[in-house]
């Protein structure tokens, strides 16, 4: 969509200022700029497309609603990723509880039947899908704080300092969480292999 005269801006600061003023086109441009990284982070934290899109939607609504309170102490990207990752973890908890309840009601046999269906994709793509499932399964077994830290670093390519900023923790804690997350992933993936 072409931006109107009042909203024709290229850098984030001007775009943010326009979005705060209520310029719809600026808000849409912010969405277009950051939707991919937001989606990838949400997907890694939740493990499926539908939930990830829900989390992205919720996060953008929250972020754009509260945009006037964004003080610009960090970049918009890191601020948004904080909202996205928190929304994803909250959604994961809600869905997890709901699924656990419905699975308990169904019984163990139905639980096996509910295993995700993977459509047969030829050759390398199938292998990649398998790999993705293994990695997602291992990721879901990490404690939420470690998972969030690891995903922000590995998927959003944030530096240690940026991750610390997003999560409001020290760089030492980031280092420690990343180390333990990798150790656990290594053990879990080796067990699967």
């Amino acid at each position: 969509m072409a931006l109107g005269i009042a909203c024709r801006v290229s850098n984030d600061d001007a775009l943010l200022a326009a979005a705060v003023r209520g310029c719809k086109e600026a808000q849409e441009e912010l969405f277009r700029r950051y939707r991919q990284v937001a989606y990838r982070v949400a997907y890694r934290l939740l493990g499926n497309e539908a939930d990830a899109l829900d989390a992205v939607q919720e996060a953008f609504v929250k972020a754009l609603t509260h945009l006037p309170s964004f003080e610009g102490r960090s970049s918009f990207k890191t601020w948004l990723l904080r909202v996205v990752s928190n929304a994803s973890l909250d959604l994961g908890r809600q869905r997890g509880r709901r699924e656990a309840l419905s699975m308990d009601a169904m019984g163990p046999k139905s639980r096996e039947e509910m295993e995700p269906l993977v459509l047969p994709v030829p050759g390398q793509a199938l292998e990649r899908e398998d790999l993705r499932r293994q990695l997602q399964k291992a990721l879901q077994q990490l404690p939420p704080a470690q998972r969030q830290t690891f995903v922000l670093h590995a998927e959003a390519e944030l530096s240690y300092r940026e991750v610390a900023e997003v999560l409001g923790i020290s760089i030492g804690t980031v280092m420690s969480r990343l180390y333990y997350a990798r150790q656990k992933l290594r053990a879990l993936l080796e067990r699967t292999a």
Binding site: R35, E49, L131
Partner: peptide
């Protein structure tokens, strides 16, 4: 492994639908 398993991007239609819902 992380790089090889990058999530598939949603389609243009999915993004458009999402933007409409957000708006």
């Amino acid at each position: 492994m992380w790089h090889d398993t990058t999530p598939h991007e949603p389609s243009r239609e999915q993004w458009d639908a999402l933007l409409r819902q957000i708006s």
